[in-house]
Design a protein around this nucleic acid. Structure first.
Length: 561
RNA sequence: GCGCUCGUGGCUCAGUGGAUAGAGCAUCUGACUUCGGAUCAGAAGGUCGGGGGUUCGAAUCCCUCCGAGCGCGCCA
């Protein structure tokens, strides 16, 4: 990566300037950045080293810049020219042969181009969606699913070992599951033609009607005749099984699968919940009040009130189970826990972290991403969840309407920190105003050119063998610059857990590609062979980068559209 | 009331303390003897919610006010 070469160059120059007395010794301790220039007029890369050093050492910025530049060892570096500009920025322009060499690197690395090792040695457990088994997967869950799946790919591309989990709140002591079971039983009785009502606090969505009809078909009236002691458990089990299967399908259609569906109930069965509670008690982080056991979350993480671990009826709460779950994650050897939750759970962060701390683990190793909502509009009108779907918009409906790729792309288009919204009619349109097609078209266009070359039986010349110095048109050089940035973009997206950076960057690639395409024909009759081969190699490199990028988003890279 | 998040062109959104705040859509003007026009070139459009502060420099950090969303259970 180019920054890895420029950064030492700057550091060496600062050191040289210090030794020569051009800068005071304290300049060595100044922080500064080396990054791509935003404005191409400023060159290819820039550093603010002189500005921060001047500020810290009380020097005129341009004088500091001059001192640094004077001691820069440019021989053998990728840098063509250095200049001082504006208030004291040091701008670099790269040698074109360095840029042209990028296609060799891309061809050599292939599908691994852009990978890095910044997360090598990390074992990451990504937990996301984890929706209650009380209804279908919603669009908001979909946003978390797209994000989690993309992060999995980004972390892997950064050298981490990654596992994904969906935590299933299936514990039989759950009030919500009780309600789900009661709701299902009512629907079942209705299906049998009996009088029955779904509890007022229960689940009214009509997905339960369909499930109940299936039960009536499979079991006849036998379930209704079960003794009172057995019936509720039977319905709980049936409700969870059928809802989980439905959720699994919704996510599979979306292209997201999990390494493991972790059952909360397994924590009770193994005794993990009980032992976690005991462990917190022994460590002195709990107390008893009103017949319940409380965790000192106020003290541990500044929660606004302490939380109940064990209810007065001796049933454990989800706080206890989740603490046990996260202990289990750490005990399985994961070094980094990443949880993706809906923003409506933000009040729960302090609780979980308190549980982790109370069990003696480092809560900083667990990072929690809160995704904001996603609003859908249709022709400008807000689309609302229907009563029949349980007041949410099912992800399956979205996928059915606009397709998997568009659904995923839109979910990743914006930062998860902002409430996003997009219009279904626009997203459905297969036209220019749809960003997912712009990205995919870049890939398809490269493929089209290369396919045509193949059909003309042109021999494929490797990037290492073409005359790369012929790639000197400004559009060609700009495309090379953009492709050279890809590894850095991947690293930044992984570091900041922000796949949406890539959707912005792929547009930049597309733009550079299309401009190159417009101005630099490869297969026209009057193009000399060496130029043709060099340009075809550039198309191949671009296609590789776009394919790799779309792969990180979990979006298809089609050869034809 | 307390807490968390967010206010950026008409709309949807980028923008890790740096240079003249960027894209896309919509609007307007151009480019088809097409290596795929799902493209490209250009125009217009901004008190970065308001006001203070920190600094060489603030959309970004701090304070305050206004507005929006979400959360404040022995539910998950």
């Amino acid at each position: 990566m180019i920054i890895d070469e420029l950064e030492p160059l700057v550091r060496g120059a600062v050191e040289g300037a210090c030794q020569a007395g051009a800068l005071p010794p304290s300049a060595r301790d100044c922080a500064y950045t080396v990054e791509p220039a935003r404005n191409r007029d400023h060159g290819d890369y820039t550093t603010n080293a002189a500005l921060t050093i001047a500020s810290a050492c009380g020097l005129p910025p341009r004088a500091a810049a001059a001192g640094i530049v004077e001691h820069m060892a440019l021989d053998g570096s990728p840098v063509e020219t250095v200049e001082i500009a504006g208030p004291g920025f040091i701008n670099f322009r790269l040698k074109s042969d360095w840029l042209q060499g990028v296609i060799v690197e891309i061809e050599r690395a292939g599908s691994a181009y852009g990978h890095n090792i910044t997360m090598a040695g990390h074992r990451v457990l990504l937990e996301f969606v984890s929706a209650n088994p009380t209804g279908p997967i919603s669009v908001v869950n979909g946003r978390a699913a797209a994000l989690g799946d993309s992060l999995r790919r980004l972390f892997m591309a950064s050298g981490a070992e990654v596992a994904t989990e969906f935590y299933v709140n299936d514990a039989l002591n759950s009030t919500q599951i009780d309600l789900l079971a009661a709701s299902l039983e009512a629907r079942y009785r209705q299906a049998l033609g009996h009088e029955a009502e779904v509890p007022a606090e229960g689940y009214q969505g009509d997905y339960l009607i369909r499930i109940a009809a299936d039960l009536a078909r499979t079991y006849g009236a036998s379930l209704a005749e079960l003794p009172d002691a057995e019936r509720p458990d039977r319905f709980r089990t049936l409700a969870i099984e059928t809802m989980l299967e439905r959720q699994r399908q919704d996510l599979a259609v979306f292209g997201v699968e999990f390494d493991r569906w972790f059952l909360e109930s397994s924590l009770y069965e193994s005794g993990a919940v009980t032992s976690a509670i005991e462990s917190m008690q022994v460590a002195g982080f709990t107390y008893e009040k009103d017949g319940a056991v409380w965790l000192r979350t106020t003290e541990l993480t500044g929660d606004d009130q302490d939380r109940v671990l064990v209810r007065s009826d001796e049933r454990a709460t989800y706080v206890a189970a989740d603490a046990a779950y996260h202990k289990d994650k750490f005990d399985r050897g994961f070094t980094d826990l990443v949880n993706i939750w809906g923003a409506d759970h933000h009040g729960y962060v302090a609780r979980l972290k308190a549980g982790i701390k109370a069990l003696g683990y480092d809560s900083d190793r667990c990072s929690i991403i809160l995704t904001q909502m996603i609003l859908l509009t249709r022709d400008g009108e807000l689309v609302k969840g229907s009563k029949r779907a349980g007041d949410v918009i099912p992800l399956a409906d979205l996928v059915e309407e606009i397709g998997r790729d568009a659904s995923r792309y839109y979910c990743l288009l914006t930062s998860y920190e902002t409430t996003a919204s997009f219009d279904l009619e626009v997203a459905k349109r297969e036209s220019a105003d749809n960003p997912v097609y712009y990205a995919q078209y870049a890939h398809a266009r490269c493929s089209a050119v290369l396919r045509r070359a193949e059909e003309s039986r042109l021999p494929e010349v490797n990037a290492s063998d073409v005359e790369r110095s012929l790639l000197r048109n400004p559009k060609e050089l700009e495309l090379l610059r953009v492709l050279a940035e890809y590894p850095r973009e991947v690293q930044l997206a992984a570091e900041s857990k922000a796949p949406h950076r890539l959707t912005a960057y792929v547009r930049v690639i597309g733009q550079a590609l299309h401009q190159f395409y417009e101005e630099c024909p490869a297969l026209k009759d009057d193009v000399p062979f060496p130029v043709r081969d060099a340009r075809l190699a550039l198309f191949r490199a671009t296609r590789t980068v776009v394919a790799n990028l779309l792969g990180l988003l979990g979006v298809a890279a089609p050869d034809r559209m």
